[in-house]
Design a protein around this nucleic acid. Sequence first.
RNA 1: GGAGAGAUGGCCGAGUCGGCCGAAGGCGCUCGCCUGCUAAGCGAGUAUACUGGGAAACCGGUAUCGAGGGUUCGAAUCCCUCUCUCUCCGCCA
Length: 423
Amino acid sequence: MLDIRYLRENLEEAEARLRSRGEGCTLTGFRELDDRRRTLLQESEQLKALRNRASEEIARSKDKSLVQERIAEMKEVSRRIKELDEVLSGVEEQLKMFLLTVPNFPALSTPLGKSEADNVEVRQWGSLPALDFTPKPHWEVGEALGILDFETGAKLTGARFTLYRGAGARLERALINFMLDLHTEKHNYIEMLPPFMVNRDSMIGTGQLPKFEDDLFKLEGLEYYLIPTAEVPVTNIHRDEILKGSELPIRYTAYTPCFRKEAGSYGKDTRGLIRQHQFNKVELVVFSHPADSAAELEILLGNAEQVLQLLGLHYRVMALCSGDIGFSAAKTYDIEVWLPGQECYREISSCSSFEDFQARRAAIRFRDGDKGKPEFVHTLNGSGLAVGRTVVAILENYQQADGTVIIPEALRPYMGGMERIGR
RNA sequence: GGAGAGAUGGCCGAGUCGGCCGAAGGCGCUCGCCUGCUAAGCGAGUAUACUGGGAAACCGGUAUCGAGGGUUCGAAUCCCUCUCUCUCCGCCA
């Protein structure tokens, strides 16, 4: 959510900043709604002040006829207040809905651009694997090894669900543990295991709702949603709290499955593990002092990159342009891993700073020292990494001519010493 | 699922027959005093949001005692609904 006072005082500037996200991001109607609200509020509050004074007078006064007169007057005042408050709460609801559906401002350091094509490559790490045969896509590798079973996944549930078997299941679990250990032991994150369903307030807090309901799985008969990312429960841990400035930055990591409807992606990435309705992810979440959030984003990105480096997987880092960053994000880096079987880079992590956008929605604040006003923290998060896509990258990059897959060294301790997945 | 108890400020906890209750008291915390040091003691302060005024310090108004609604001139206090927590029984990993 954007700062309503900033909008009030800098509406033109605000619109200009939003415009870099593309068409359709306007603030039309804000001024009128905001003015209307304040006019109604002032009138209502003045009447309430009058009523409070009269009520006190009634309580103290011994003059019966004066009391009767005041009561009669206040009866009318109360009726008027009720009328005003009904209109007011309607206007406030509209204003709130409006504010909740306006996206974040892109950060100044976010490159300007209209689409994915305008994203900027920041760096590459490693090099393309030298394979002396034609690499296969991971679904072929995985099916041939009997470790990925798409057909049975579809039988059990439907399209975009996969059954992992044997070493495949083990590989997924190994990666989760490897990532969590890395982030907790080397990068100072505290491990969390949150609920995989959250309520509506949590979804509003991080920005999934009210605008993106279509992407979420909702439980029948309950206001609970399956989480699309651990970002939601983990960021909301501190919803409605005032943290101590000295506690910041707070770093949490969490493994969770993620559930996404992937509405509007019909026909896209239909084969393999790339786009599933359910996938595993290890997430990194940081609550930062506002002054440090830019530096924290670089640290977070580095922590995610470390996973790929230890696994020896070639990748590039892209700075997303203003037209491509997500609704809540001010700045986003995507890490794209090289997939030789498909001859392309694919997103395996997305690391973002939301600045105070989520903090304002979720009321996550901090106070420096003991006096001083509470301020909104900055929130950040990133995948560290998407586990299913890491399996994809390993299968494609470490496949051998004979169809077996070498297990990256760093992962072997987590695979019971296994060095290679064969038939 | 059945029966009962509860939800008050950072924490504990009071709140009488509805008014003088943003809310006693204690703890904690902050500042000051005092004492070789520490502990103890003494004094003062210590919620948040919205809103009006002001360059600001700050001053005024409104709201908030789990959430929402109702009764009333007036609700932490009375009534209704919901949520959550706890205890007992049942069931269950």
